[in-house]
Measured scan of single mutants.
Amino acid sequence: QVALSRTQVCGILREELFQGDAFHQSDTHIFIIMGASGDLAKKKIYPTIWWLFRDGLLPENTFIVGYARSRLTVADIRKQSEPFFKATPEEKLKLEDFFARNSYVAGQYDDAASYQRLNSHMNALHLGSQANRLFYLALPPTVYEAVTKNIHESCMSQIGWNRIIVEKPFGRDLQSSDRLSNHISSLFREDQIYRIDHYLGKEMVQNLMVLRFANRIFGPIWNRDNIACVILTFKEPFGTEGRGGYFDEFGIIRDVMQNHLLQMLCLVAMEKPASTNSDDVRDEKVKVLKCISEVQANNVVLGQYVGNPDGEGEATKGYLDDPTVPRGSTTATFAAVVLYVENERWDGVPFILRCGKALNERKAEVRLQFHDVAGDIFHQQCKRNELVIRVQPNEAVYTKMMTKKPGMFFNPEESELDLTYGNRYKNVKLPDAYERLILDVFCGSQMHFVRSDELREAWRIFTPLLHQIELEKPKPIPYIYGSRGPTEADELMKRVGFQYEGTYKWVNPHKL
């Protein structure tokens, strides 16, 4: 086992960053958080920038500027975001240094004079007029057009580079997404736009490419001749908990499936790229999406959770019991969808996408189930092999396979070949997804960000279904809070070829 401390991990990262040409360590950078008073800024962006600063992973002359409508001070920003920093008493001095680099400007999102004030403020910072500028839009999409237009007109660096990070949702359907994309691309070049999907920053999602293309053993079996089906799962054990009003506007397909799960599907299904260059990788992902037809209604199961009468606390409440959810809402909190990649490698292999709230566990994984062994000599005792990439929690890679049961006879039983990170790298604290992705933006690497043509294809696949749901308002199937979801989803999976045995229990190697 390799035991690495946080300091050692960050030392390795620093070495990698400083050796590259793309990370300008000594240049002045300004990180501007648009929507600095909001939840995302408070819980994710400010803490992430602090962790990067604490670990010495930001360029040395980096300033952080918050911008929002609320009249706040840096002290206010500190008060609301610091509880999420997880700072230790030993880091007190470092924390003071961090907040000394912070400033805040209040202004409207659609007022040109406010942006001119913001620009004057940035120019007044040390070497601010020639600094590289990175704008993070932690804002609702309704203000994107006004904000990007004003940034472009008043706040661009004339000497350094300018980059803009856009948070999902990128529209509600193909038409609104196209409108937003066309607007942003009329102001910024594609190499300046970073559409963030934080799932692409997760260690195991990034590991998929290495697993596939750096190991000879997987190449020959990664196709329709050997793989019976692919299941991509995202499960949350909690409901909307008072935030249903926002969720109800989008629903589970827009929230998770059309982005996170579809991105994971691309990494499983794509061909080997010409290189690890950002556009070479994204070219292959677009090719996969172009091979997927629009979702067919007979390959869809929609569910909505109801309270568990035997549960406790939140578990007793259904989705419609959330006071922020519109009365009688038919918005799905669970969806199972089957897609097919219609190309030579994957023809006929079902890709089953499942996601839901208020389920029995927290889990995100990719599961490849292989065909049955031909010419069975073990009297149907063999179960199908599976390769599982567990994204969260407890990152893991393992192969479910058959071995001989101890004893006199040739009785096979299920076991696993474990390729888990935790076994080799004991207690290594890896940077989280937002840390990686923000560092990628500083480096100018777009590999783990969504390109406009990729986004367009993703919406093309799901828009007809979303429009049909909005028009017909089908009643989702009720499922109990804390269950596996509607049984109809299991029946759909069985119908397209997935075999669920229920006889195997994964042993978490992190707890051995």
Rank of each mutant, 00 (worst) to 15 (best):
Q304T: 09
M493L: 13
K290R: 14
A458D: 01
G311C: 14
Q499I: 13
L289A: 08
M493G: 15
N360P: 06
Q468M: 10
E365W: 03
D321M: 09
R451A: 04
E342P: 09
A374T: 12
G444Q: 07
H448K: 12
P412R: 08
V337W: 07
Q380H: 12
S278F: 08
L439V: 09
V341F: 04
E472Y: 14
V325D: 02
V325I: 07
G303R: 00
Y479S: 06
Q381T: 09
M493T: 13
F378K: 00
R390E: 07
A335L: 01
P309I: 14
L437M: 07
G303Q: 06
F370G: 03
E365D: 09
R254M: 05
K473R: 15
I389F: 06
P431N: 13
Y481W: 11
L265S: 05
M270K: 01
D432A: 11
D310N: 15
E294H: 09
Y421F: 09
E416N: 04
Y479A: 00
C266V: 07
Q499D: 12
V366K: 02
T316D: 09
E344F: 09
S415D: 04
V325H: 05
G407Q: 08
E488S: 10
M493K: 11
I292M: 13
T399M: 12
E454S: 03
T420V: 08
C266H: 03
E414V: 13
Y340I: 08
L302F: 12
V281S: 06
G311F: 09
L439P: 00
I477V: 12
R436W: 01
D280S: 12
W346N: 00
K404C: 01
A489S: 14
F410K: 08
R282H: 09
V295H: 08
R495H: 14
E294W: 09
A458E: 13
G307M: 08
A458N: 02
R282S: 04
V397I: 15
Y340A: 10
V256E: 08
P326M: 06
N360G: 11
L262Q: 08
F498Q: 08
T399H: 12
N343L: 05
E414W: 12
V428P: 12
E344I: 07
G303C: 02
S278L: 03
V338K: 14
T333R: 03
G444P: 02
P323E: 15
H467V: 09
N385Q: 07
N394T: 08
V388P: 02
W506S: 05
N259I: 04
W459M: 02
K494F: 13
H448D: 08
P412Y: 09
V306E: 11
N277D: 15
V325Q: 04
D310S: 14
H379I: 07
N360V: 00
K363I: 06
E344S: 12
G502R: 09
K317I: 12
F378S: 05
L466M: 10
E491F: 09
V301I: 14
L492A: 06
V366G: 00
G444H: 07
M264Y: 00
E457M: 09
G303V: 04
M257E: 02
S445C: 13
M257K: 04
A269E: 03
G303W: 05
E457K: 02
